[in-house]
Write a protein that binds this DNA or RNA. Sequence first.
DNA 1: CGAATCTTTGAACTGAGTCAATTAAAGTGG
DNA 2: CCACTTTAATTGACTCAGTTCAAAGATTCG
Lengths: 278, 278
Amino acid sequence: MTCTTAPLTFAGRPGIAEVRCTASDVLRWFGLPELASAATERIGYPMRRVHAGSSLLIEGQPFERLHLVSGGSFKCVQTDSEGYEQVLGFAIRGDLIGLDGLGQGRHHSGAVALEDSTVVPLPMRELLATSHEVSALETLLLHAAGVEVSRRSDSQYLMAAPSSEVRVTRFLLQFAQRQAALGYSGRRLRMCMTRRDIASHLGVAHETVSRVLTALAQDGYITVSNRDIELLDPSALNELQRVTRGRHARERHADVARQTTGAAPVKRAQTAARVTLQ
Amino acid sequence: MTCTTAPLTFAGRPGIAEVRCTASDVLRWFGLPELASAATERIGYPMRRVHAGSSLLIEGQPFERLHLVSGGSFKCVQTDSEGYEQVLGFAIRGDLIGLDGLGQGRHHSGAVALEDSTVVPLPMRELLATSHEVSALETLLLHAAGVEVSRRSDSQYLMAAPSSEVRVTRFLLQFAQRQAALGYSGRRLRMCMTRRDIASHLGVAHETVSRVLTALAQDGYITVSNRDIELLDPSALNELQRVTRGRHARERHADVARQTTGAAPVKRAQTAARVTLQ
DNA sequence: CGAATCTTTGAACTGAGTCAATTAAAGTGG
DNA sequence: CCACTTTAATTGACTCAGTTCAAAGATTCG
């Protein structure tokens, strides 16, 4: 809930010089290192810490700056009139938060830190002014917007999946891919969000997320240890994920299960068999 | 599938001068009339016709221009490896199509005309060049990106709804709102898409869309005549739409049904009664 | 170390998906 | 303009995946 507007010092200790970074750093974190130049090297931004659980952005707030996540992670949420919190997505290092504000000058969604995190607040006014001289920043902005739209498409694709098993699988693969793109392991995942957050994002009950994860683990596709998930068989997961609405969803699924029967433990194999028999 | 790249003449008749519009027109259609100026008046764009059922954009195509819908409507789709067509959204007059291409320089989704339509193709290269002098175009671009992100959030909210009844209701209300914003009636809706398209967008079976619509009609909330839908009781629909995951969804629903019992025909009232009794 | 939150698991019920069949609408071509 | 085909929409019957409710572990955090 706290959202200090005054310039923050690192670790919240006043008197210590605040940590800063350059526009070049921003471009590199965002994934456009080739745009860094002497000009961007001269532009500096202060950084800001956000503690686990506190809000970086609140819905309805006027849009004044974007935030680049330089460390940690966030969930982007929209709270409806009943108090239900819809998770729209998760932001990790390199992601820009707040682009929805570009439309109406007001944020339509909030952002909550999932762990202690750091961001680079980028004042829009300044950014726009500078971008006329330094075209790299203009490119950054448009590129970011495009990436955000694409990412939302992916989320829509997630949520449209016919079965919750497919939804969870798609989510795992997408998350793994993003981690891999940052240079982390695409197999050993540390999930920074709760099951409830995942459930909200996928549009299912949180118990279902739990059940699907244990089911996938029983099939030998993954291992689950609390928030640590390892993808044992990404290609098999890829098959699972492909199942779509309309065409023989169950058959396909059975096929996949059958292929891995050797590795699949008893309980789950029965399910597959029962399905196949019909 | 056809996607002519050569400059088109109106109604496809060669020899007739092509229909053009100015950047001022574009700004007005998009909803930013206050940005039109003498400068934008001097910038001209040709327009293009797209026949019902043909593709304006194909997935994977390199991103070269945005398209402003000046008449008609489109569905934006993503086709997965199994051939299943996921509808990401619908574009009507004033909407910009193709913003997802800003990210990777390549379109991740396609666009298909739902009826005979007209668009204004805006070449990105030209747009970027001009925007350095005419800031209205820069504003347009950023504004459009923000609106697009917000719109996707709305879609995610749609798809996350716990029951298909809520999903369809939210969709109707959102669609009505967009029509109203364009100056059309927000009550009498002409749905330009098929039930299947709606179903895909909401992540439900197309039969379910049909059933929900007839159910809503039986309750007296709407009337349905093929693609013409009239919202009889928007405020009641608003109540329905508010139902979220987790808290007494059924109770709430029953409450709503009870309020309108007077107007509600027999069959549906029974349903409500049964629910209330539990 | 206790409180709170998160996670898992079980049991029961039902909403919505699938399959199937009929009706309606919209094209198509003679 | 009217048969004919094709596609869209509705409706019914049946079944199961997933929600809800409940309760027991696990983990985190003051």
